[in-house]
Design a protein around this nucleic acid. Structure first.
Lengths: 353, 353
DNA sequence: ATGAAAGCGCTAACAT
DNA sequence: ATGTTAGCGCTTTCAT
């Protein structure tokens, strides 16, 4: 790291990147020695004096080991991939942030992929990750089934899935781990709460069609209404995209009904936020005119007004736990069969319902 | 991709990953041929019949090229790194999303690093990226100077920096590109607006100390007050961390003053949101008791209540443009000297001021 | 049109 | 204690 300067840069034609061989030459040792001190190989004892010569040479040349070459040789990349549907959704970034904590602690790198909730991008990301660039994968998949993961697992690349597994992701003896909260139960908690508060006409803004969280949370909605002997009016069920816009549109549609619902369960906080905007825009008030319960408890939930009553998922914990499960597999300390861990949720009552 | 099944997985011991050599053997050709068809090498014409045999073999084995080996050989990774201070801040994720758009269009992968705004993590990420794993870097740096980027640039790894460069990031002849908005001018627009609306006692929630955006925005604040002949009361200047919590604490401190400010400029929307919470908690109303202007125009800015008056930065455009500048360099179509592009900002007036 | 062979930078088994 | 050597899987001359 000595004496870099701008002039340095200007003159020097594209500098050759120093390699281990260069270091070895300068230090007057064999290339293997350099590798030994670099990796603190405990089988080999390098005398302190030689070691220092090598370290000096490394310093002088500004040598950095080439990770690509190292990975090719060791067949380990020390890198984990996290694949999420939407990097601009706080739920997913907080999840990723939780993963980062434990990945860093293990000395691994984390790389992030974004699939935009698009089926072919989900598949494409998996194909990419088959190319030997990561040691393991943590994925929030919306459109995949067990078969999609088989190629990876055959290559011994462990995968942890985040989310409800209504699709046959887990099969007997399938070494695929997952973390999830019980979406059905969580949705029931949300809807029960509304019913207990006296609401009888409850809308649902359900989230993107044909995705597991959507299905599970809608199922919870149906179950709860049935349980309380309430009829389901399908007009009260709106799609959505899990994002603000979907919640806004869904709420507008619900408000156009007559009679309109007195309460709404939105299957994500982002949609709940959009719904609150629509309510305000219509000159109405939450929770007085329409009560709203969300899902996720993202950071802004407590900050908006009215503060959002919602189902907390503890996404940072979800991320941490999924990473731990992944490292269990990488370290060979996981049971052969896939584990399916259920994580806690919690109804957080604030002001919107 | 034929006939994967769970049983398949269970029996088969850790399957050997098929290589080009395996494909070649099965197709009865030399390994080079496989590489030719894989890369559509135009100098070489492979007869359709041979080509098909190879494709069949690839299919049958489920062969995927090993990206690590390919990178080692070609010295290209087809991967771009984006380094951001805080992956849970919408400003940065929308920025990253903009980058992803153009990176994908170029057939590259994007990997994301998170530095938590910590100096040593910023430096560490750069060191990581010196290890030959990416072809280029787009970074939002809070604590780095030109010297930090020299090793990368010497290795011919192009870097685009996002943000105001009060630090000597750009030097004559230094091939480092950057995009930024004029933070000083933007801050002046925000503060002028408040003054024009009659405010005379204006607080500043300034953001993390010793960072360029903080300094620039604070400078704009000072300049504007001076311009209007208003004295600066340093007690009206609060630090913050660019996050909700910092804005909340900053606002509480400001509200404890007497007389308290009638308006506040928060150097990020996240802090503005926190400030609004503090205002509400104190039983006050924005904008009547305290007006608030934010900075960034993140997606929730328009959704909270009161909707946030703020400075829009168009972070998706920032991301796209920085990626384009990077590819200019990768394609050799960039001027030798670093470009320093200023992007537009805009005062967006909503309800909070 | 196809094949043989070198080598990208590194690690690890083996030899000295 | 240190050196020699053989690849990891791929692309790319250069021969044939």
């Amino acid at each position: 790291m000595t004496g870099y300067s701008v002039n340095d840069l200007k003159k020097s034609s594209p500098k050759k990147v120093p390699t281990q061989a260069d270091v070895a030459r300068l230090a007057g040792v064999s290339q293997a020695m350099v590798s030994y001190v670099l990796n603190d190989n405990s089988n080999i004892s390098v005398p302190p004096e030689t070691r220092q010569r090598i370290l000096d040479a490394i310093e002088e040349l500004g040598y950095m080991p080439n990770k690509v070459a190292r990975s090719l040789r060791t067949r380990k990349t020390k890198t984990i991939a996290c694949v999420v549907p939407d990097i601009t959704n706080p739920f997913h970034t907080v999840f990723a942030r939780g993963i980062q904590d434990v990945v860093e602690r293990h000395g691994y790198d984390l790389i992030l992929y974004n699939t935009d909730r698009i089926p072919h991008k989900e598949r494409a990301s998996l194909r990419l990750l088959q190319q030997g660039r990561v040691d393991g994968i943590i994925m929030t998949a919306l459109h995949l089934t067990a078969e999609d993961f088989l190629p990876l697992l055959r290559l011994n690349i462990p995968v942890v899935v985040q989310g409800p597994n209504v699709m046959p992701l887990q099969v007997e003896g399938f070494p695929l781990d997952s973390v999830h909260v019980n979406d059905v139960a969580a949705a029931r908690a949300a809807v029960s709460y509304l019913i207990e508060r006296g609401h009888r006409r409850i809308g649902l803004i359900a989230g993107q069609k044909d995705t597991p969280p959507r299905r599970q949370r809608e199922l919870g909605y149906w179950q709860t209404l049935a349980e309380y002997g309430l009829a389901v009016d399908e007009k009260l069920i709106q799609d959505g995209d899990f994002r603000e816009e979907g919640g806004y549109q869904g709420m507008r549609a619900l408000l156009a009904l007559s009679p309109r619902p007195t309460a709404v369960f939105a299957a994500s906080d982002l949609m709940a936020v959009g719904a609150l905007v629509a309510i305000k825009e219509a000159g109405l008030k939450a929770p007085d005119d329409v009560a709203v319960v969300g899902f996720d408890d993202i950071p802004i939930a407590k900050l908006i007004s009215p503060a959002l009553t919602t189902i907390a998922q503890f996404e940072d914990k979800l991320g941490q736990r999924s990473a731990e499960m992944l490292f269990d597999r990488l370290n060979g300390t996981a049971p052969e069969e896939g584990r399916r861990e259920e994580m806690p949720y919690q109804l957080v009552v604030r002001d919107s319902a």
